[in-house]
Write a protein that binds this DNA or RNA. Sequence first.
DNA 1: CCGATACGGTACTAGGCGTACCTTAATTTG
DNA 2: CAAATTAAGGTACGCCTAGTACCGTATCGG
Lengths: 191, 191
Amino acid sequence: MSRRRGAELEDAILRAAAEELVRSGYAGLTMEAVARRAGTNKNAVYRRWPGKAALGVAAYRRLAVAATDVPDTGSLRDDVLELLRRVNQQWSTPLGAVQRDLLAAAAAEVDLLAAIQEASADAGSALWLGLLERAVARGEAPSSALHPRVATTAVVLLRNEYVTRGAQTAPDEVLIEIVDEIYLPLIRGRA
Amino acid sequence: MSRRRGAELEDAILRAAAEELVRSGYAGLTMEAVARRAGTNKNAVYRRWPGKAALGVAAYRRLAVAATDVPDTGSLRDDVLELLRRVNQQWSTPLGAVQRDLLAAAAAEVDLLAAIQEASADAGSALWLGLLERAVARGEAPSSALHPRVATTAVVLLRNEYVTRGAQTAPDEVLIEIVDEIYLPLIRGRA
DNA sequence: CCGATACGGTACTAGGCGTACCTTAATTTG
DNA sequence: CAAATTAAGGTACGCCTAGTACCGTATCGG
């Protein structure tokens, strides 16, 4: 029997950790179970990651590679609402719960936080800026709306729903309210 | 020696838990230490609260009674910025860190979440709506701006800084950016 | 072929949550 | 006022999990 080493073993551990994450959530993630599922022991894990949080983040990054493609309906409102709905849907999955737990668990270590941010495309402003750029080209929005913090306001407000309400999912009415009562007025107001 | 009972003992436990909370944070809070500091044992604690999260929230509520008074400078921008600065300052204290940890720890139990919300006045929309009402009276804002979600947008964005950046405190430039680039344009745009 | 390196196995320690059980004090009730 | 009930105190658990230590052994590079 061959003994796995280096990258091969590391890969197996990450795969195992990712499976455990979706199965049991971050709270239920145990180093022991990860090692067992990977067919190894805790030593191999601790040689690579300093602790549970770091492993959790590393495993999450492998799960959250699926980048959301940006909708292009020809209407700013529809684009925003659609992207917001996709994000909401993604956050409603067990993976979204994992992300939130991880965000809380990694709050102490700044580098881990950055790693999570990097992994979740929805957090980046690129998607939202791109969407706005097309609206500007169509004359639906002023170019002064192309501002990172402005662009991501809708998704930030949605995240707040999860954080403060502990919501499993945000109802569609909330998304509509965010778009119609805040995001679009904000874009208008920056003219 | 007299043996404390009922409300008196409950009070001592809550006081002890609050002290432990500011000393060691929520992560370092242990039922054992709380009981010891209160001069009793874990039994008395568990007879009153089902677990660590519930006790933590109850203790936090006793700490966070200090309601922020709303500034009234005569200018919407100054009012908003000032209130935001006060909230930022409050969230920068150890107590703010406790609140964030608690928010994460109580994410599973909805009733606990509600209890935290209730305790932190800054989360409520009343403060922000009151501030806006005065601005409307002065003609600085349209009455259509009097909307709970709109009113609290600034503080929600600030919270996001803490959640996603793990910030100890948000720099003043961020507050200014939130006010000038988002909050005020939003108010304008709702005219 | 020979180190050096890293994996596997196992056994620990340490700490904390939550529970069980019993004794003892205070309070309520007949 | 005595008896019954309620609630504290004391203590010892069971259980789980993080993280560490040690050692034999397979693999890899030179």
